[in-house]
Amino acid sequence: MTTSSQSQNCPVCGVTIANNEVVQFANGSTGTRARLYARVCQYAKKPDCINQDKNLIGEVLKDDGFLEAPQINFDS
């Protein structure tokens, strides 16, 4: 069992989760377990993923996932 003062490294995606809540992505700012789940874990579905416990993930907000890409007009 992991205590809240330890960091975990995910063998699936390589992110680090510090203090059981702060996620350090490979690029960009830090995030939450919910953001990690929304962007990676729900799609990867690997048995070794360390971010599958719904109680630890918390509520996934609309802004946690990727935004829709804007429409591109190729007729210009």
Rank of each mutant, 00 (worst) to 15 (best):
N55R: 05
K54E: 09
I17Q: 04
N9S: 11
F66N: 08
L67H: 13
L36A: 10
R39V: 08
Y37P: 04
R39H: 04
C13F: 02
G58C: 06
K54Y: 00
F66P: 06
E59K: 12
S29W: 00
Q8W: 13
L56F: 00
G31Q: 04
V15K: 01
R33T: 10
K54C: 00
Y43N: 05
V22E: 12
C49G: 00
V60M: 03
T2R: 14
K54Q: 10
T16G: 03
A26S: 13
D53Y: 03
V15F: 04
G28A: 06
V40R: 01
T32Q: 05
A18V: 08
F74L: 15
R35P: 06
S4Y: 14
C10R: 02
Q52I: 09
I72R: 14
V22A: 11
G65K: 08
D63G: 09
K62M: 03
N19G: 13
T2D: 11
K62D: 08
N51D: 09
T3S: 12
D48E: 14
V22H: 07
C41F: 06
N73I: 15
N20Y: 11
D53W: 04
Y37V: 02
K46Y: 06
G58I: 01
D53C: 02
A38I: 09
R33M: 08
Y43T: 05
A69I: 13
G65R: 03
I72T: 13
R33P: 13
P11H: 08
N19A: 13
S5G: 10
K54D: 09
D48F: 02
I17F: 08
Q71N: 14
T30M: 06
V60S: 04
D53L: 04
V15A: 01
D48P: 00
S7Q: 12
D53E: 07
D48S: 07
N27T: 11
Q71M: 14
I72F: 12
S4G: 12
Q42H: 03
D63K: 13
I57P: 07
I57Y: 02
S5W: 12
Q71L: 15
A69W: 14
I50Y: 07
T32R: 04
A38Q: 10
E59M: 07
D64A: 05
N55F: 00
Y43R: 02
T16N: 07
A44R: 05
I50D: 05
D48M: 08
G58M: 01
L56G: 00
I57C: 04
S5I: 11
E59N: 07
N51P: 03
K54F: 01
G58E: 01
P11M: 11
V22K: 09
E59D: 05
N55T: 07
G65D: 13
N20H: 12
R35C: 12
F74E: 15
G58Y: 02
D64P: 07
P70W: 11
E59R: 07
N73H: 15
Q42G: 00
N73A: 14
P47Q: 05
E68L: 12
G14T: 08
R33G: 09
Y43F: 12
T16M: 10
C49Y: 09
A26M: 08
G31P: 10
G14K: 06
I50M: 07
I17K: 03
